[in-house]
Nucleic acid binder design. Sequence first.
DNA 1: CGTCTGGCGGAACCCGTTTTCCCTGCCGCG
DNA 2: CGCGGCAGGGAAAACGGGTTCCGCCAGACG
Lengths: 378, 378
Amino acid sequence: MNITEIARISKVSRSTVSRVLNNNPLVKEETRAAVQKVIDEMNYTPSFAARTLANKRNNVIGALIYNIVQPFWAGIFSGIERYVSSTDYGILLVNSKNHLDVWDYRKDYKKNLKSLVQRGVDGIIIALNHDLDLEDIDFLESSGTPFVVIQDSTRNARIASVNVDNVAGAAEATRHLLKLGHRQIFHAVGPLDSTISKDRMQGYLNAMQEANLPVTNNMLVGCNGFLFYDGYWYMKRLLAQKQRPTAVLFTNDITAFGGYQAARENGLSMPEDLSVIGFDHLASSMDVAGLLPDLTTMIQPVGKIGYEAAKMLLRHLDEGQRSASVVLSMILHEGDTAAEPLGNTVRPGGRGSKAGESAAQAQRRPKANRDRKPELAE
Amino acid sequence: MNITEIARISKVSRSTVSRVLNNNPLVKEETRAAVQKVIDEMNYTPSFAARTLANKRNNVIGALIYNIVQPFWAGIFSGIERYVSSTDYGILLVNSKNHLDVWDYRKDYKKNLKSLVQRGVDGIIIALNHDLDLEDIDFLESSGTPFVVIQDSTRNARIASVNVDNVAGAAEATRHLLKLGHRQIFHAVGPLDSTISKDRMQGYLNAMQEANLPVTNNMLVGCNGFLFYDGYWYMKRLLAQKQRPTAVLFTNDITAFGGYQAARENGLSMPEDLSVIGFDHLASSMDVAGLLPDLTTMIQPVGKIGYEAAKMLLRHLDEGQRSASVVLSMILHEGDTAAEPLGNTVRPGGRGSKAGESAAQAQRRPKANRDRKPELAE
DNA sequence: CGTCTGGCGGAACCCGTTTTCCCTGCCGCG
DNA sequence: CGCGGCAGGGAAAACGGGTTCCGCCAGACG
């Protein structure tokens, strides 16, 4: 059953059938109805392959996603799909990290990128762990495939991207702690080969500088990684030292949970003895509410990121205009792990701190609930 | 740059170029090399669209996945992709649950299924929350699109499927508890409109019957759902009653975590006062090891499920032979939440229980560590 | 009566695949 | 030695199923 058949049966030409299929207004209403009737009766649907060949349009976009198994990227994909499924596009998904061989990971994602382009997808959304390099950009541009990158920290003008402002997010988290009265705020820096870590550190530094608080080296110790035990051991090392913070800003939720656990093991209770803040709001994607502490954290609007990226790409495809990059902001989730510091753990503080703030901070300090049980054990 | 161009430059006919592209042996080695050289130099790749049109082969399979955001389904997809990416196929992913409107979810997945078929994918892998209905099967068969279903509990002979043996898995979990010496084993039954729940209940019943232990109504109370608080309230209700179990078999990890939490709140410690077993081994996909108890659970081999399904489908596509359905088994993960019961909580037990077992069980019972702190608070 | 325009048909085109056919050269047999 | 048959390799053309440009025709309008 093809368009010629339909044309034969409805006694019109193939072009007319095609026009009916594409809602071309140059068809008399009468004819259109007659042809449509035949189409419906024969249960005919035009061949995607032929359409693709003729239109040079696949109605498929490619998604190159770092690791779909992790909630963060799954959330991004989900946002993409939410938008795309409201159109007549499909999504060809490539998981960049599937064969994870540390040694040729980059070769892998490049290969996947090539395969998407060769397949002739109409556009590509790229959500990786790292930035695209110039080779990739050249390749994509020369292939003529429009693309949108999620989290391009190079801010390359040749790239249309959807970003989250990690600098602003980290600054907001830090300011939240400052507002609560913390002065000894440490930052468990993430691996510095990741721009995300770098940006978050920058945001922390910005906020501390705004508050005129000096940041010493010991306040800015690295976490070595993004995993639970990276945060755990960070905290263990920290607690072995003399100078302790009243608050720690972690570089993500996982390490924050690790730090939380280590601190609890050492008899600290959160948020009384120590405030902890993370990034991501992982808990929202795990259904184990109640078992985990309600971590105070900066929410990544993952769904929105994907949604915006898809919208941007399809707009480009359908209307031809490349839209400008977008920066989304993170939202503070006030959980149970950040509160005003207890008086006695606070040091005199940076010499530059404003007098007015110090007074306000002194007032807010509650003395009572020191022995409250930790959330988790209730 | 198309095949005609290549033919012109290399001074052969288009058919010869096509033969070179498809490794047809009827081409002289000399000619082949010359043509290949031009292809490489011009950086030419044949058009997927034209190939699809001519071959009636897309080299794309569709994946209809229930909810890619949840680790279980993400794991299945990942397994699919691991196999597929070793071939030259691509995957068109459709998330069946995206617009989740409770009222028309079924309409939704049917629409998605149709769209995959119309797009002309070569085959489809279907991993849903529920079984396909006859309408779906008729539709797929009449479209001629091969398909593989993940978890088809109808065991329909028209369906090629990859299954996990929930009955055997639940029986194994129950036998594990029996071997530890438990007699009062309750099962927190999942929603019975789900075949998974039904099968797990059946496995539990089988194992109990094998052991000649009667199952009374109160041992088989429903959990109302698959979520954390379903398990939580189940346990709260349970603990309000006089007759308490020494072990509870939950229908999945999430509810098991909920039950665990509720029991802890009531002062019980696991596994001393109560053993708890779940299904799925969720923890393996969440990176918060250390914060959550190491739940004893039946592992679903999610990656393998997806991998096998993909293998089965692509074999069918490439070799034309439809393979038989596969049943995979679950694996017991011995975590920290199931152990021998304490003596005083064990009742005389089923009258049919074997004497030998009772003796062994009496010996194994530790009296000491009753007051050990719960895992989580350490 | 000429021109414009709405509606439609014809045909080229998208880009490979595949079948059919032909040519060439070699071998064998008469 | 010459011719027929056969095999290997290459060319031409049909085909898959749409889309779209071009142009025809008839009726309307000036």
